[in-house]
């Protein structure tokens, strides 16, 4: 929850190439599989205090694979 809105992160598995930028910048939001490809943890809801990390992850993914969805 942030500002009353629910914010989620999502990794597009077709775009992710495992650059590992998202995990390095927002370790609480992403997990890697055995090949180093990323996925959002759980339902991807960004807790209070993790919003900046989520936007940083998106701003540094070279494949544009990190999406932020505000509901």
């Amino acid at each position: 929850m942030a500002g009353g809105k629910v914010v989620r992160v999502r990794v597009d598995p077709d775009k992710c190439q495992g650059h590992n930028r998202c995990k390095a910048l927002a370790p609480a939001l992403f997990e890697l599989d055995e090949y180093g490809n990323s996925k959002e943890i759980g339902d991807g809801i960004v807790p209070e205090g993790q919003l900046e990390a989520a936007y940083l992850a998106r701003a540094n993914c070279p494949e544009m694979a990190v999406e932020i969805i505000e509901e």
Partner: peptide, 20 residues
């Protein structure tokens, strides 16, 4: 630099195996 989608390790399927 806060936003840095650099391509030093390539882009797409050939992303560098050794980047980490």
């Amino acid at each position: 630099r806060q936003e840095n989608r650099h391509s030093a390790f390539g882009l797409g399927i050939h992303r560098c195996v050794g980047s980490n």
